[in-house]
């Protein structure tokens, strides 16, 4: 009898401990005891995650090639262009690809005059946990603090929510709890863009019930107070479907995000918001959607000729090593506290 009771007692004790952890977590906020524990373990686990990530990156590349969609012909065409590009450059394929991606990303940051620190995704949360979050390989010592905007190729990726000394956690825009103030290109109509938990769909709610809204409209961030958590002018996505008629109390639209989060690798964290609102200047001028994640499509992002040369792009883009973490050249922290920004339209709408 004793043999069969001992495991049950042990299980009972473990469950009790787990339940009390959950109870503590439910009541605590980020500054509570658990926040401290997570910060410390993050400093230990972050570097381990970083090392494991670089160790596993060849496997990821291999599987990506296998699973990337399209017909055989398309795959062959892609591979052929890849081979040609490699012959031309002589550099290793992965490094070359990432160089291009980083360059395009920095060009985009330059167009909006965002001062950024490039970073690399080193970990992603399991999808059965429902949260859409990633870990980056930069943290407090690189000048990162909570509520900073995270850019990826194409536009807005998310915002920083938790920081340890060498890593930080980003809640992606597609997460079901994410919400950002959005502005329609040109028109200036504003509303809220919310994540749905679905990687390829966002929801846009227009504030003005009679405002013009149609499929194909593009949305940029409205910008929060002091640029936290979202700086203005970052492309979010393109309206694909409008539901509800003009005059209805709420007008909703489906939005396809410009950033493809399933292939997120290199990102840039905005450590200093632009002095002037970049309005629509970060968007690609052509009416064609920029949603395709190919680097060639977004390589056409123009740098406004009149704008002052942004420091981030000139200093960081010149460095050949992509994985190197450029330290910010200035003291990046605006004086505003990273806590709540109740006045901003980017505050949670849920």
């Amino acid at each position: 009898m004793r043999e069969s009771r001992r495991p049950r007692i042990i299980l009972g004790v473990l469950l009790l401990i787990a339940f009390s952890f959950i109870a503590i977590d439910l009541r605590a906020d980020a500054n509570g005891p658990l926040g401290g524990v997570k910060k410390i373990t993050g400093s230990v686990l972050g570097p381990m995650e970083n090392a494991a990530s670089s160790f596993t990156s060849p496997v990821r590349g291999f599987v990506d090639n296998l699973t990337s969609g399209g017909s055989k012909d398309e795959q062959i065409a892609t591979l052929e262009t890849e081979v040609q590009r490699l012959r031309d450059s002589g550099a290793s394929g992965d490094a070359q690809h990432r160089m291009t991606e980083l360059n395009d990303l920095l060009r985009m940051s330059a167009a909006g005059q965002y001062r950024v620190v490039p970073a690399q995704v080193i970990g992603i949360g399991s999808s059965q946990g429902f949260a859409r979050t990633v870990t980056l390989d930069i943290g407090q010592r690189d000048g990162i603090s909570a509520d900073m905007t995270v850019l990826a190729l194409g536009g807005l990726a998310g915002r920083v929510v938790a920081v340890s000394s060498t890593s930080c956690v980003v809640v992606l825009l597609v997460d079901a709890t994410a919400s950002v103030g959005g502005r329609l290109e040109g028109a200036g109509e504003i509303g809220f863009v919310s994540g749905t938990g679905n990687e390829s769909e966002l929801e846009f709610q227009l504030l003005d019930p009679y405002g013009p809204l149609k499929a194909g409209d593009r949305i940029v961030t409205f910008g929060s107070k002091a640029g936290k958590p979202y700086v203005p002018g970052v492309p979010i996505g393109e309206v694909t479907e409008v539901s509800g008629t003009p005059g209805q109390l709420t007008r909703l639209a489906k939005v396809k995000p410009f950033v493809n989060v399933s292939t997120l690798d290199i990102v840039a964290v905005v450590i200093e918001p632009p002095r002037d609102n970049p309005r629509d200047s970060v968007l690609v001028p052509s009416p064609e959607p920029t949603s395709s994640a190919t680097p060639s499509a977004s390589a056409t992002i123009p740098v406004p000729s009149g704008s002052p040369a942004p420091k981030a792009s000139t200093s960081a883009a010149a460095k050949p090593s992509v994985s190197a973490k450029p330290t910010p050249t200035t003291t990046p922290k605006p004086s505003a506290k990273p806590t709540g920004d109740g006045a901003s339209p980017a505050a949670s709408a849920r």
Partner: peptide
């Protein structure tokens, strides 16, 4: 329990601390 706690702690975990430990135990 131990593996669940580690999964709950490792960034970018955002779930309730202890929930994975409970389920995996």
């Amino acid at each position: 329990f131990a593996a669940g706690l580690l999964l709950d702690l490792i960034p970018p975990s955002m779930g309730y601390f202890g929930l994975t430990a409970l389920l995996l135990a």
